[in-house]
Amino acid sequence: MNLFDFIAGHYDYWFIIILLAIGLYGMTVKKNLVKKLIGMTIFQAAVILFYISSAIKADATVPIIMENLSVDNPANYINPLPHALMLTAIVVGVATVGVAFALLILIYKNYKTLDENELLELMK
């Protein structure tokens, strides 16, 4: 396998790995709870990006039928299934973030801080 072809053939995949690692870093290493949430958003966005970037097809167009492009050859249009799946995933991400906001407000009301170390200190 040609290494250059391998790297160039997956070039967006490397960026996605970087984003996934950044998101995971934010979720696990950062101590502020909002920062954890931001890391979670980045992680989910990277997963969505992985689906979308894998769905593209060379020399194909957007999945909306045009009159001068035949639908009989599937190579003419981009695969619509991952797009539909990722719409659902985005909604799930928003819902998760909403629930997390509610929990964060409750935490702040109880302890007046959002820092994990301070919270663990206060809970002893």
């Binding site: 979308i52 593209i56 167009t61 797009h83 990722m86 719409l87 928003v94 964060l104």
Partner: peptide, 27 residues
């Protein structure tokens, strides 16, 4: 740019709009 117009639309409305407002409200 990857051809997922629907997903791009949703991400622009939700990720950059509503989620941003909710983040600000939470802060």
């Amino acid at each position: 740019s990857m051809g997922a117009i629907d997903v791009g639309f949703t991400e622009a409305v939700v990720g950059a709009g509503i989620t941003g407002v909710l983040y600000v409200v939470m802060i």
